[in-house]
Nucleic acid binder design. Structure first.
Lengths: 149, 149
DNA sequence: GACTGATCGTCAGTCTAACTGACGATCAGG
DNA sequence: CCTGATCGTCAGTTAGACTGACGATCAGTC
């Protein structure tokens, strides 16, 4: 193969599950660094982007496809509202609901943060070139090679 | 490509990070099912296998390479000892240490559980055939396709 | 031998993230 | 106007790993 870009194969008998988790942690680290300047985490960005793409929605309409608990969504919107990236507005056609809509600042921040995450993904993928299913183990090792700790 | 074994490409613009996490959750689910009959989780199995392969060790010697906190290792060994898979024995050459050693039952269970996890990994990988680095996104989609929820 | 600083296993307490269950307000349908 | 469901919210719980401290023990120094 040619995917062990200077990192070689996993030492010992690392479990596939560990390698997957390790690669995930590595990407989370890169993504976290990319999002830090915006004060966002990946989930908050996902909410912001969804609102910008799909338009204002209630908290639960937002929560379902993102697989977030309804009570957790309260906290996410609280945070985004605190950063003035979104607004809560009563839904005129259903007064039980809040319509969550991005502010102009929110739309701009969402676009910028998305670019930053795109760059982080590119950095992440730079660790691997070509892949083979039977050698996924080696690929994941390479992907996670820079993960500190 | 030919990796979308009946699952297609990710809908919408799923983040690479989400797809990695999803694949990881999928494998964790399969592995969890495989280990349930033994009453073990992946980390406990790792400890058991390490002890069988590398011989009796202190809790901290065990904890370091597995990236487990020393206080967490106390609980892991407690559990394994409760299942009579390992024994604590005072290290004759350093009475601060416990030497953790697998019981015969522990060695056998470790071997059986390892085979079960191997089978789970094979099931997991069955979802993908050949891979291409630029199409890792599609690969991860396919890998995680059966994850419930 | 006594002293110093580090390491071992352990435990109590803390922290965090997410969840459960309940609440009042509101909606749709009969 | 009832009934049952859904909305956002909040208080309380849970699970997991961590921090900090403890006594016991070790290695090295005087």
């Amino acid at each position: 193969m040619s995917t062990d870009d200077g990192a070689g194969s996993p030492p010992r008998a690392y479990r596939l599950q560990y390698l997957l988790k390790r690669a995930h942690l590595r990407l989370a680290e890169l993504t976290g660094q990319a999002l830090a300047p915006y004060g966002l985490d990946p989930r908050e960005l996902a909410v912001l982007v969804t609102l910008t793409q799909d338009g204002p929605q209630s908290q639960q309409e937002l929560a379902r496809p993102l697989q977030v608990d309804r009570t957790t969504m309260v906290a996410i919107v609280d945070r985004l509202e605190g950063l003035e990236l979104v607004r809560r507005r009563p839904d005129p056609s259903d007064r039980r609901k809040n319509l969550i809509e991005p502010t102009e600042h929110g739309r701009q921040t969402g676009a910028d943060a998305t670019r930053a995450v795109d760059a982080a993904e590119r950095t992440f993928l730079d660790a691997a070139a070509d892949v083979d299913a039977a050698e996924l183990r080696d690929l994941l090792w390479a992907l996670g090679r820079d993960f500190r700790h």
